[in-house]
Amino acid sequence: MKKRWRYVAWAIFWSSLDILGGSGQVQAVKDSSKSPSVNQASCTQCHDDWAATLPAKHKPVAQASLQVCVQCHSPQGWGMDARNAFDTRIHMAHLGDQVGVDCLQCHQWAPGGPLLLHGVGGQYGRFTLGDFELMREIYLAASSSSLLDHEHLVQGVTCSACHADGFFDQVDNGICLSCHGPMDTLIAKTTPKQFPDRNPHKSHLGEISCTVCHVLHGQQKIYCLECHPNFKLRFDGAPSLKQAME
């Protein structure tokens, strides 16, 4: 509970910079060479009151710059957060609801090239323009929406909890079941009284991926209905956003 909204404190509206338009399109991922020079990626460029920006219990830092941050918050690449959720929180704060900072404020990138951090060594994979767009959409949805990614985040389940091996790592059912399982319990919960074999968790398709229906970064869908439109199936029991916030 206490950690839940801590990242929100990081979300400061940077009106002077390129922001994400209401349409959800990426407006400005530019070639690094043309972006405002932030070679040292100093946080104070935008955060005038640096002391107020840092979480209250954060130990003092020598310099408000990316180089200093990553000394403790080691970047995992692809927005991962295996160590301490810093990657998720920093991206959430800068890309999330109402905040749309140009990616190239912190990152260095040219079309076809690798993703770098200003003034920090190491590469973070080959990025396309579409990847930036995807990151923005995911963080926007995750920061404030009725989608399941948001529900997971507010419960403290950050990106790497599911995507352990990288951004495009497909999520294994075992990961979902480590919290939501065991499968037998789910099967029992969703066995229809009238037609017991019309059970979405135990269907004629055998074992299928949880995310076929429980889409995290988009609207959930009931796959069964694609072939059985007359089935009376609906999502039920998942905590609503409101419940999670209370």
């Binding site: 004629h204 398709l205 055998g206 299928i208 991926s209 995310t211 076929v212 796959y223 072939c227």
Partner: peptide, 10 residues
């Protein structure tokens, strides 16, 4: 598709 088996599985 997001499940294996195509038409064969049904």
């Amino acid at each position: 598709r997001s499940t294996y088996g195509g038409n064969s599985i049904i």
